[in-house]
């Protein structure tokens, strides 16, 4: 069908959503069974995951094709902007829940555990952060801020800069430097992840700091872990964008696919700053 500009594009009926639902059905049952040590779970989980990947490729591929064939007018573009913006807000709130847990433990529940009421139960407990709690006897060393974490901060901040440089290159129509800066961003992201994995190894092997190390271990690993997961997603998204750039997608005027991912990358950046301050430094 020919497109008149000014028309809002409403996609044709699509099979991708139901494929996605099927994937989640498998994954949910698979994960539930796996966590309860039932053999069947692993298989279901793997099948679900495979279907999910297939769906993501198919669905996003469709959107990219629609975009490249000029189906999206300015109004659709605005919709994508609103949509991505509010999606990032939901991500912020997800992290807020975990930060909230951290603050609550440090400000409220930890002092309460050390107060007079509890001294009968746990006479030797000293309520000081970091803690593994009054009932955990294994000792651990907390993660310092000025080693790897500081380097990681630098890496991520730099990657924010390279990401913006890539954007400028795209706007200026300099495709080669666009690709170069994108690659640099991805490289910094992956390096960050590598160091993060190394840091986890160090925590488990040398510091005896584990996910099971009470309040500190829980918040440390869950916050940094979810952040790392988001960096992974961001890096994958950047890679997709890289290949789209290499395939000649996007124009200096219209490139929301790129911008959306860039927003996401900056969001991941900001979350890290919060982590660095509240998890590592304070």
């Amino acid at each position: 069908m020919s497109q008149e500009s000014g028309h809002y594009y409403v996609p044709a009926p699509s099979g991708w959503p139901i494929v996605g639902s099927t994937a989640l059905l498998f994954m949910a049952f698979g994960a539930a069974l796996t966590m309860n040590k039932m053999e069947l779970g692993y298989g279901l989980l793997a099948v679900g995951f495979a279907i999910l990947i297939y769906m993501l490729f198919g669905w996003f591929g469709t959107v990219a094709r629609e975009s490249e064939s000029g189906k999206f007018n300015a109004a659709v573009d605005r919709s994508f902007r609103w949509g991505m913006g509010w999606f990032i807000l939901t991500e912020v709130m997800f992290f807020a829940a975990f930060f909230g847990a951290l603050f609550y433990m440090r400000v409220f529940s930890l002092p309460w555990l050390g107060d007079a009421d509890h001294s009968l139960l746990w006479p030797d407990f000293v309520a000081e952060w970091p803690t593994a709690g009054p009932g955990t006897h294994e000792q651990f060393t907390p993660m310092g801020a000025w080693g790897l974490p500081a380097i990681n901060t630098l890496l991520l901040l730099t990657s924010g800069v390279t990401c913006t440089l890539a954007h400028w290159a795209l706007q200026a129509g300099k495709r080669e430097s666009l690709k170069m800066w994108l690659l640099a961003t991805i490289f910094l992201g992956v390096l960050f992840l590598g160091l993060q994995i190394y840091e986890y190894g160090h925590a488990y092997a040398d510091l005896n700091l584990k996910l099971t190390s009470g309040a500190y271990g829980s918040t440390f690993f869950m916050l940094t872990g979810f952040h790392g997961f988001h960096v992974t997603l961001g890096a994958i998204m950047l890679t997709v964008i890289y290949f789209r750039c290499a395939a000649g997608h996007f124009t200096p005027e219209k490139h929301f696919g790129f911008e959306g991912v860039a927003w996401y990358w900056h969001f991941v950046d900001v979350v890290w700053l919060g982590l660095f301050i509240f998890v590592y430094l304070m």
Partner: peptide
């Protein structure tokens, strides 16, 4: 993890 477990803080 020990989010909701007092023994773990």
């Amino acid at each position: 993890t020990s989010f909701f477990n007092a023994a773990g803080g």
